[in-house]
Structures are given as structure tokens and as C-alpha cells.
Design a protein around this nucleic acid. Sequence first.
DNA 1: ATGGTAGAGGATCTA
Length: 255
Amino acid sequence: MKLATWNVNSLKVRLPQVIDWLGSNQPDMLCLQETKLINDNFPERELAAIGYQSFFAGQRTYNGVAILSKHQGSEVVTGIPDFADEQKRVIAATYGDLRVVSVYVPNGEDVTSEKFTYKLRWLPALTKWLQQELKQYPKLALLGDFNIAPEDRDVYDPKAWEGKVLCSQPERNAFNGLIELGLSDSFRLFEQPEKSYTWWDYRMMAFRLNRGLRIDHILLSRELASSCISCTIDKTMRKQERPSDHAPVMVELGT
DNA sequence: ATGGTAGAGGATCTA
């Protein structure tokens, strides 16, 4: 079983790359963020044509999340229950006994911003909901763009980013709140290359210089973490023409 | 310290 996540930064622009990547990698599920599409415009038929069922929650211009799967899903939830939020950032679905949650955590813009306050309200709401979900679904995978680099080794220049949005202590504390639910950062279950990142700014040749951050994650509940075989970042798509600024991340789970 | 790029939408906002 392979689970993946990818912030595509517009599914309209990236659909050919998504179809190409699904064909090459054959994940069972792919979680998407920043689809930037209203539901009426979601390319459901194109994805069904290559064997993927879609669940999606979109809006105009910004945000938007989805789960694509080779398997029949059910129990779809969009948004964090009991948390008023017009922004489409969460979708969850069940596949057999596997609960899959795709999240696009608010960016926060800057630690002095109103958007940062929203980010720090949003994360505990997510955490509280997932605590309930874990009771119902011991096999839970939380995938997405967390907009948080958990540790300094996830940042190309920790000194320059110290205290900045995506790296600040309040954000890292919120990330640890998710870990304390019993979720594991699957990437760190394995030995990994140094300077592994999932996002590089489009500007200043950041990708070529590997000036990136690891902010896209796959967190696994205990039951799933024990069967996790690998977690990898696929930089190949970031090298293509007109790439997303994020790379896909994928885990493989054993039986 | 500033501004660089990309996407959406058609001027800025978001990242």
C-alpha cells in the first residue's frame, strides 16, 4: 500500500503532471493540496479514466484539498467538525480500515500577521478533532502541507529562519501536539539524506541551490507506523517545466 | 533591507 501527498499549486495547471506521476508511481492514494478549483471544475473524469476515484473540497482561487484513490472510499468529511472555517483545507475518507486525512495547514504569512493567529487557532482544532478520529480509526494517516518545518535540520538555513513563519517555536509546538497524539513523522522513521526538503521558493533559484524546507509530511498512527517500510521525497517533478513549488512525498506500508 | 516568481484573475492577494 502506497500513500502520497503533493501540494500541486493549481490542479488545473498541474493535471498533466499529476496524471503522469500517478502512472509512474501507482500510489493507492494521493492527497492533494492547493487545487485552487471549485468543485464543478474538478477533473473527476480525467482521473477516473486512469483508475482514480476523487473526493474533493475546493473553492475559487485559493486552497482546496482532495484525495485520489484506486480504492472505493466512504465516510467523507470536509473541514474540521465544529470549527467554523470558510477555507477549504481538510478532507478525510475511509478505505477499508484505513482513515486518510488530507490537510493544507494555513501558511501564516508572518508571525506578526493575523493569518498567523488563525494558523495557531487552526492547528489545535485539527489536533482535537484527530484525537477523536484516532479512537474510531486506529489506522490513521495524516498527509499534507503542514507549513511547518519541525526541526532545524528541515531548514536549509536555520539561523536565517529562526523564529520566522514555518519555523517558529509556537508552530513547532503545535506540530508536536500532533505527534503527541501518537502520530509519527514517517520520514524520520528511516535514515534519510541530509538536506532533504519538500518545498523550494520559486524565486532566487532556490531549487537549484537546494534552499528548501521540509514542510510536507506524512504522519502515521502507531498501528500504521509499525508497518511503514519507506518514506521518500520525489524531487523529479520539481525539476520539470512549470513545476509546483512542492515535491510529492510517499510512504509504503507493508501488510 | 529589499525583492525576487508563480497562480488566479484581470488589480492585487496569497504563498
